[in-house]
Nucleic acid binder design. Structure first.
Length: 482
RNA sequence: UCCUAAGUAGCUCAGCUGGUUAGAGCAUCUGACUGUUAAUCAGAGGGUCCCUGGUUCGAGUCCAGGCUUGGGAGCCA
């Protein structure tokens, strides 16, 4: 094919009079003269102008929304007001027709719900062009951040035989014919006949394997798909999502928090620096949406202000115990406006409480630490009991406005005896986990790590409000289209 | 899984206490116009009123069950 010029490069050039070849998809064809053409290289379109007297009418009729075309023409200064530069078309070829009667995208605003139903075509809209460009930039920035710090990118298994990851319901992996499952004499499933010779699942976390690698490389991270078979129907949960899980030897909880905060700020900064057009578009999109809402529901600041605010302020770090005290004395608690009233120490925080802390009390990201041991996982490091004899663990959750928990992590329990005791208490089968316990048997060392939900990060940076709109093909209960 | 709201044209929606032939805007098609910016103007076509059953002389409308979707909650990243 002819060497094509990308529209992104074209829009910033000033080579007036130069002949170029451009290929892309028609967004609109106005007035029988003006093609708004997009090739995906930028959210912006180039305007291509045809002299309708010089082209067959039957050809111009095929310039429908969605059609793929190739044009040759001259770069000229635009005579119209809406754009600086445009192309005067000399020749025009239709690469792929798009039946206007059937193509579902129109040059107008569509609802996000409708676009979700046509997720295979929604890439061709401005909004999703912006969202997935930002998603890409953030993914790249994750690798750059860790690589520049000397972390090793570790590929932990997606199929796992471990059911002790403790992060929720798992999807079973099997090659059994569901109608003819081999059984033992007592009626239980005979997994010895299955592909792996044992029961296997899709991973819910790469953390345990990550710890194994951290105890050799020092600093590692994973970045891969994760699967949870929870029947969660919310704007913040997916059955298949991507998670970033760094794991660092010789880190305590404070080092862990420092790294997480540095990473989040780096990623937000990277998006601001590299996705200016996309963020500007999404910012304006949100402002337009806000205008439809009653005054009380409108956001206090625009997307870019919100992102910059995040960069300029330290995340508030408080312990669970401090948080409980703030909540207990808070107005909504005393006026009994919380659905779940805070009465004392020990209860898990509900999302209304997290929202109060982040959005009302501190008005910035908050890191909560040192949760009660009873409500947290077995691998988290035990603190010494406090003056009142209460047990906490060295856990930390980072809460973001509008998102809730974006990071969950902890310093790990490196002392074999404590770990075995905790596993027993929480009914974790130690015999299946000896490979994990070996890290504590042979050269155990203090270490820590966390998990960052990638889609929740993309949600925050793009200002989108439903997690189904920041992953190309969302998997949720009762939905695995495409 | 629970609470709640919704499902009517390709899209966004209206449709009153049940009553003849179910409407609008946009999109599409036809024509006009030709420097437009979600172009404009005129006209036309387009419906399994989510599905199943029930009540009724008569159901888009009422009732029951189901499916799907939005919002909230729980679980979490």
């Amino acid at each position: 094919m002819a060497k094509r010029t990308r529209i992104k490069d074209l829009l910033v050039s000033s080579d007036f009079g130069k002949q170029v070849s451009v290929m892309g998809w028609v967004r609109t064809f106005r007035n029988n003269q003006f093609i708004a053409l997009n090739d995906g290289s930028t959210i912006n379109n180039i305007q291509a102008v045809v002299d309708f007297n010089s082209f067959e009418e039957s050809l111009l009729k095929r310039l429908t929304t969605g059609a793929a075309i190739s044009i040759n023409g001259e770069i000229v200064e635009s005579l119209g007001k809406g754009q600086r530069i445009e192309i005067k078309v000399n020749s025009l070829e239709i690469l792929g027709d798009s039946d206007a009667d059937k193509f579902p995208l129109q040059p107008k605003k569509h609802s996000l719900e409708f676009l979700r139903e046509i997720a295979h075509l929604r890439f061709r809209t401005n909004t999703f062009n912006a969202v997935f460009k930002i998603r890409h930039a953030l993914a790249y920035a994750v690798h750059k951040f860790f690589n520049d710090k000397g972390f090793v990118y570790m590929h932990t298994p997606i199929i796992t035989a471990s059911d002790a990851e403790g992060a929720g319901e798992m999807f079973r992996v099997s090659t059994f014919d569901p109608d003819h499952i081999p059984r033992n004499e007592d009626g239980t499933v005979n997994y010895k006949e299955d592909f792996f010779g044992k029961a296997t699942n899709l991973t819910v976390s790469g953390q345990l394997e990550g710890e194994l690698a951290a105890m050799a490389f020092g600093d590692i991270y994973t970045f891969g798909p994760t699967f949870r078979a929870e029947n969660s129907n919310t704007t913040r949960h997916l059955a298949e999502f991507w998670m970033i899980e760094p794991e660092m030897a010789f880190y305590d909880l404070n080092d862990n928090m420092d790294l997480a905060e540095e990473l989040l700020k780096y990623l937000i900064r990277y998006a601001i620096d590299h996705c200016a057009d996309e963020l500007e578009f999404l910012k304006n999109r949100l402002l337009e949406e806000d205008k439809q809402k009653p005054l009380t529901e409108r956001s206090e600041s625009d997307l870019l202000t919100k992102l910059n605010f995040c960069l300029e302020n330290n995340f508030e770090r408080i312990t669970y115990t401090e948080a409980i005290n703030i909540l207990k004395n808070s107005k909504p608690n005393q006026k009994k406006q919380f659905k779940y009233l805070i009465e004392g120490w020990g209860a898990d925080l509900q999302s209304e409480h997290e929202r109060f802390l982040v959005e009302k009390h501190f008005k910035k990201p908050v890191i909560l630490t040192d949760y009660p041991a009873d409500i947290k996982s077995f691998y988290m490091r035990m603190n010494e009991p406090d003056t009142e004899g209460r047990s906490t663990v060295r856990a930390m959750d980072i809460l973001f406005p509008g998102i809730g928990e974006i990071v969950g992590g902890s310093q790990r329990e490196e002392r074999l005896e404590n770990l075995e005791k905790r596993m027993k208490e929480m009914h974790i089968p130690a015999e299946d986990m000896s490979w994990y316990l070996d890290t504590r048997r042979f050269g155990s060392a203090p270490h820590a790590g966390f998990g960052l939900g990638f889609e929740r990060l993309v949600l925050f940076v793009t200002g989108m409000t439903n997690i189904r709109d920041v992953i190309p093909f969302p998997r949720t209960p009762k939905n695995a289209e495409f």
